[in-house]
Design a protein around this nucleic acid. Structure first.
Lengths: 146, 146
DNA sequence: ATTGGTGCAAATCCTTTGCAATAGC
DNA sequence: GCTATTGCAAAGGATTTGCACCAAT
């Protein structure tokens, strides 16, 4: 059966292949992101990482998150709250955000950016790399309350 | 033929119907947004409005933009640069952003949020209000250069 | 031994708040 | 005249920068 251990061999291999250093901060931050089921803000990661690695600084958190995104191990997303969120779930999916309670729900939805660009008549004007969809509205709970 | 004059009768009517005041700042800010073809940041609007109405403050810009969004006259969007953008083009469309040069291109694409939620099996868990899609990548020019 | 990464402090950028003054109704 | 809006100054939150130190190679 699948283990709950979130290993970081892929990160280590990627760093080595690029001649970059394998540091405990990098491993701990990725492990923390993988442990969570939910997306996290930089600040949440910062607080969590402090348990394992006190003294870790915000600049390191931000630099590492950016690096993980660049390496394709983490997705950065902006759902309209002030802070960016980071998500280690890499299967294709999109997001729904509740305007009232802030809940973010994953949508199992695989979008084809090239098909979308074609539909828009812009297939030849753009080389897609990432597709981010955010549906905002009310979650069932908040809709019931309102 | 269609006129290039961007009138603000709809805003005036909406404000009156809600018992809110018709101020020159509100009219000028909406007119400025409608005059542009491109989306603008709060700061761009701030600078432009200063020509017509020197002394207009950033808090007023932000409060007014938020009001216009609430009234359904303007769309707010986050394409991943630090600042939010505001767009007075209200026909359904989505956006593509170039990672290199920052260009934002409109995509003539009408997305049905309910259909998307259904496809994701979340139709009963969410009451959609807005749908924002951002495809990021490289515009044709930047792709050619790279 | 090198030099890429880190921590600290401070800076920057975008946006919001508090409150007195002003202008719509 | 009443009170919503405004302007000003200042605060706030997220993220980045500069630079000396540390630790992975």
């Amino acid at each position: 059966m699948a283990m709950a251990v979130h290993n970081t061999d892929d990160l280590i291999a990627l760093l080595r292949s690029r001649g970059q250093r394998v540091t405990s901060q990098r491993l701990v931050i990725l492990r923390e992101l993988r442990r969570r089921r939910r997306h996290a803000t930089a600040e949440e990661i910062y607080r969590a990482v402090h348990q394992d690695l006190p003294g870790t600084s915000t600049p390191t958190i931000y630099a590492t998150l950016e690096l993980l995104v660049e390496l394709g191990l983490v997705r950065k997303l902006d759902v309209g709250i002030g802070a960016s969120m980071y998500d280690a779930r890499m299967e294709p999916h999109q997001h729904a955000v509740c305007r009232r309670c802030g809940r973010i729900e994953d949508l199992n939805l695989e979008l084809d950016p090239r098909a979308l660009l074609s539909a828009a008549g812009a297939a030849d004007r753009f080389e897609p790399r990432a597709t981010e969809l955010v549906i905002s509205g009310l979650c069932a709970q908040c809709a019931a309350t309102a």
